[in-house]
Structure formats: C-alpha cells, structure tokens
C-alpha cells in the first residue's frame, strides 16, 4: 500500500499555524472531493445496514468518528515504534480495542441502541475507512495532522450515512428521529426500509456530488 507522505523534510521553519491552509484541506477534502463513501467507495456495507432510521445512524456515525480519530491519534503517536512487519496487526489491535470500548459503553448506557446496532458496531473493525486512514495517513504523519485527517474522514462518512438515513426514514417510516412528519395516511415506501432503498439513495447522492465536482473514475 502506498503512503502519502505529507511531512516535509527536516528544515527549521516557523511553526505552522494551528489551522493552516494545508491542515484545513486535510479536514475538508474527505468531506466532499475525497469522500470515503461516495468517492473512495469504502464502508458501503455499514452505510446500507444501519441507515433505516436516523437515531441508530447517528450513534453509528459518532462511534465511527470516535474510532477513526483515536486510532489515527494512537497509531500516529507510536508510528516510529511500530515494527513494519507487524504493522497491520498492530493497527487492527488498536482498532479492535477502541471498537470494543465503544460497544461496552453503548451496552452500559444506551442498551436499546446496543440491541439495534450490536453487530454493526463490532463490524467497525472491518470498516475499510478506518484501516485505510491508518495505513495511508497516520503511519506517516504527525499526531495532530492525523487527528484532523480522522475528523475529516469520520465526518465525511457521517454526513453521507445521515443523509441516506434521512431519506430512508422519511419515506420508509414517515418520521424524522421517530417524530411523525408525513401523515399516517401517506403510504410508506417498503423499498426504503430495504437495503435496495439505501443503494438507490446512495447512488443518487453520488450522482449529484459527481456532477458538481466533476469527478470521473479512471
């Protein structure tokens, strides 16, 4: 796997501003132009599975942001000590630990959500976005930059699944965060509670986004 080396050669320069142009770009890129779901097409599985309703989707989004940010931070902080031959296992161990922590906290304090999300929270371990960022960014960049990168990718993932969940809950159940929006008489669309509905909504989001950014796959 290739690594993006954004670190400059060791030349004494004035300290980079806290939110320099380069750092802003690290956060903003994954939100739109390099979005993990719509452009890199990663993490599709969970984007389909948890987006029937907004509430579990929000919990899932928070969990993923937490895991990406902290795994990026930890891996970046110890990147100079990780033996290259076992780096993937080390990354996985850190991700798995963080995911287990999230799952345990959900079980303790929001048991209803834990019941709905149970398996999917565990599957964050296999979410390619998380490992992709560790391998491509955190292994080669400083801790603060890695946290920014984690925030960017996390929120890039979060807004897409929340958008999909908004459409699916509105037309599939006629509600918004379980508050009734559409009248009872308005027929709900069974397709939207099915994964097929998620595919269609996701496809439309990708279409709109690409027609705006002009992104073409090579």
């Amino acid at each position: 796997m290739s690594t993006e080396v954004l670190e400059k050669p060791i030349v004494k320069e004035p300290a980079e501003p806290f939110l320099s142009k380069r750092r802003k770009k690290i956060v903003s890129d994954p939100l739109n132009e390099d979005n993990p779901i719509t452009v890199q097409v990663l993490g599709i599985c969970s984007a389909l599975a948890v987006t029937v309703k907004l509430q579990p989707t929000l919990v899932m989004a928070i969990a993923v942001v937490f895991v990406i940010v902290f795994s990026n931070l930890i891996i970046s902080a110890i990147r100079n000590y990780i033996p290259n031959s076992v780096r993937i296992i080390v990354q996985l161990a850190v991700i798995a630990t963080l995911v287990t922590l999230v799952s345990e906290v959900l079980k303790a304090y929001v048991y209803d959500m834990y019941k709905i999300l149970g398996a999917f929270v565990g599957l964050i371990i296999t979410n390619c976005i998380v490992m992709g960022r560790l391998e491509a960014f955190a292994m080669a960049n400083k801790a603060y930059d890695s946290v920014l990168d984690g925030l960017g990718s996390g929120f890039g993932y979060a807004w897409v699944i929340l958008a999909v969940a908004f459409v699916r809950e509105l037309f599939g159940s006629g509600t918004f965060f379980d508050l009734r929006i559409l009248p009872e008489s308005f027929p709900t669309n069974g397709l939207m509670v099915d994964s097929i509905g998620a595919f269609m909504v996701l496809g439309i989001i990708i279409w709109i986004q690409r027609s705006k950014t002009g992104y073409v796959e090579h």
Partner: peptide, 9 residues
C-alpha cells in the same frame, strides 16, 4: 531509517 519513519526489524 526507511521511508521517513524508523523501521524496526
């Protein structure tokens, strides 16, 4: 030193 970070072997 390899690829910008230390590699332990």
């Amino acid at each position: 030193k390899k690829g910008g970070y230390v590699v332990q072997q």
